[in-house]
């Protein structure tokens, strides 16, 4: 069931997930489109999530933006000034490097795998700030099996730091390691299922990445015969029209529906890019998610040595990193 409407206010709005935003020219969503988008959200009972660019929007946008309860996603240090001070607990700042200060309660830190390794000690320092840290790796498709041990090791090091914080009575939130400890079922991106994205052109997309691809004419297939001319799944005039909507749901993903790496993003955009099927995750995504899952299991066990913690959660020991390798057991 749809719950969220993501509104990309400008073509240069900040990228906050796996996909980079390659669009460099400003293209602000027309006020009328914004109003219609908000109206759509109100009628569908959706929580609006605005995605801001790094420049200040024209004044007339402020009152429209604030005409409904919302969450703001914005570049680090560029908190939008809309004349209101009712900052949402759910507002998100997005950084491409380790920030000095984080205003919002949530930080999305977008790093390549190698940058993540390089800055692992700096990342530890963020854990103690009482914010939710979402580390988003921006080059999942490049992840090779040779990097598995390095990933395990860095997660293990972070586990040690997180355990210390738990021992001190804190409850750090770090998506890669603490989310799985709290989850009893899949909690993924759910693009097209629980959230949908409205772009400045007034069209709906499964997520911002599909809009970027369309604008950049990124061909959706390796052999590059046909451009992906239209990734949209409806518009404000005609409403939502998602083809094959069932394939976005967990039950229609053979590799995922019995998987228990519940914290996995299940990124549809990466799925399409790497396996060409929206419902089929790549080897890279599965392996990384399972390394995180297993590290979460270690953390959970370590915390339980100190005291009772989430007794209802059971993360069993498994001997694979890619469910594809054991698919016959499904």
């Amino acid at each position: 069931m749809l719950q969220y409407l993501v509104i990309i206010l400008d073509d240069t709005s900040v990228a906050y997930c796996h996909a980079d935003n390659p669009l460099e020219e400003r293209n602000l969503m027309p006020l009328e489109t914004l109003k219609k988008g908000i109206l759509f959200g109100m009628k569908q009972n959706l929580m609006i999530q605005y995605v801001f660019p790094d420049y200040a929007l024209p004044e007339e946008y402020a009152s429209i933006i604030e005409s409904i309860d919302n969450v703001k996603i914005y570049p680090i240090g560029k908190k939008p000034d809309t004349g209101l001070n009712d900052e949402s607990e759910a507002d998100v700042e997005v950084a491409m490097d380790i920030p000095e200060n984080v205003d919002a309660q949530n930080l999305v830190l977008r790093l390549s795998f190698s940058e993540m390794l390089k800055q692992k000690d700096e990342i530890v320092k963020l854990f103690a700030q009482g914010k939710r840290i979402n580390l988003c790796i921006t080059d999942v498709e490049q992840f090779a099996d040779e990097q598995i041990e390095a990933y395990k090791q860095v997660l293990n090091e972070w586990n040690t730091a997180l355990l210390d914080l738990y021992k001190q009575g804190q409850s750090p939130q770090f998506n890669l390691l603490t989310d799985r400890m709290m989850l009893e079922k899949m909690h993924n991106c759910e693009a097209g299922v629980s959230n949908i994205t409205l772009a400045p052109n007034g069209k709906f997309y499964l997520c911002p990445a599909f809009y970027y691809d369309e604008r950049m004419q990124v061909f959706n297939q390796m052999n590059h015969h046909q451009p992906s001319s239209d990734n949209s799944v409806g518009d404000l005039e005609k409403g939502l029209d998602i083809p094959n909507p069932q394939l976005l749901k967990l039950n229609y993903a053979p590799l995922c529906r019995k998987c228990d790496a519940y914290q996995c993003r299940r990124c549809l955009w990466l799925n399409r890019k790497l396996t060409w099927d929206l419902n089929t995750p790549s080897h890279q995504q599965c392996v990384m998610a399972h390394i995180e899952r297993n590290a979460s299991r270690d953390l959970l066990n370590d915390i339980r040595k100190v005291g009772e913690f989430m007794p209802e959660i059971n993360i069993k020991e498994i001997d694979y990193l890619d469910p594809f390798d054991v698919r016959k057991e499904f």
Partner: peptide
Amino acid sequence: KDAWIIGNIKDGIDKNKIRSFLTLDRVT
């Protein structure tokens, strides 16, 4: 539709491109 090329004789098979085929079942 465009061809579903899963690799070539020089680089071999891109195994991500056959994952959906090998997980297909009747019901899904």
